[in-house]
Simulated assay, not measured.
Amino acid sequence: MILEAVMLQVKKGQEQEYEKAFAKASAIIASMPGYLSHELQRCLEKEGKYLLLVRWETLEDHTVGFRQSRAYHDWKEKLHHFYDPFPNVEHFENVDLSNY
């Protein structure tokens, strides 16, 4: 399982509109092959800051399957205009601590 983590900064005053748009766009990502789950967290300390966590079966499910799909263009159209600055996406894998 791969965890995609994205820190998002939404333009001031557009938070409610963003959350509504994200709720609608969630169906897009949830329909993708290899998608497992996602969650959007709102920061308590900084207005307009969010953390998006998406779980994928493989890295390629996100970087190829989703990002190179027609669905990704719909996702971008619905959400990318809210961000300033544009976010960086990082991917993580679980550390098996039982090996230590």
Rank of each mutant, 00 (worst) to 15 (best):
K49Q: 02
W75N: 08
Q14R: 08
N88R: 13
D84I: 00
A23I: 02
S31E: 11
Y83N: 03
S37E: 13
Y18L: 09
V6D: 03
Y50L: 01
H80I: 04
Y83V: 02
K24G: 09
M32Q: 14
L8K: 06
E17I: 14
F82H: 04
K12G: 10
S69N: 01
H81L: 15
L52E: 00
E47I: 00
I2N: 04
Y100C: 13
K11P: 04
V54S: 07
R42N: 04
A5I: 11
A23C: 09
H62T: 13
P87G: 00
E90K: 06
E57P: 10
R70W: 03
V95Y: 08
A27M: 13
S37H: 14
Q68F: 09
E17M: 14
D96C: 12
A25I: 09
F22Q: 05
V64I: 05
I29F: 02
L79H: 04
D74G: 08
Q41K: 13
N88K: 13
G34V: 03
H38A: 05
Q16P: 04
K11H: 12
H73Q: 09
P33G: 14
S37F: 12
Y83R: 05
P33V: 04
W75Y: 11
F92D: 12
K24Y: 10
D84N: 03
E77H: 08
E93F: 06
A23S: 10
R67A: 06
R70E: 14
E17P: 12
Q16C: 03
V89A: 11
E47T: 03
Y72Q: 07
E45Y: 14
Y100L: 11
Q9C: 03
E60M: 13
H38R: 12
I28N: 14
Q68V: 00
F86S: 03
V6T: 11
E93R: 05
E60N: 05
H73K: 08
Q14A: 05
A21Q: 07
A71K: 05
G34Q: 03
S37R: 15
E15G: 02
C43I: 00
Q16M: 10
R42T: 00
V6R: 02
M1S: 15
Y18M: 08
C43P: 04
K78P: 13
W75Q: 04
D96W: 12
L44I: 07
S98C: 11
F92R: 06
E17K: 14
N99A: 06
K46G: 00
Q9F: 04
D96I: 12
K12S: 13
K11V: 08
H80K: 12
E39M: 09
D74K: 07
A21S: 12
V89N: 06
S31M: 09
I28T: 10
K46R: 02
K49I: 00
K46N: 01
G34F: 01
K24P: 14
V54C: 14
P33S: 12
Y50R: 06
H81Q: 13
D61P: 05
C43M: 11
C43G: 07
G48E: 01
F86E: 07
S98I: 09
D74W: 03
I28W: 09
A21I: 02
K12A: 07
T58Q: 15
V54D: 15
H91N: 10
A5G: 14
H62M: 10
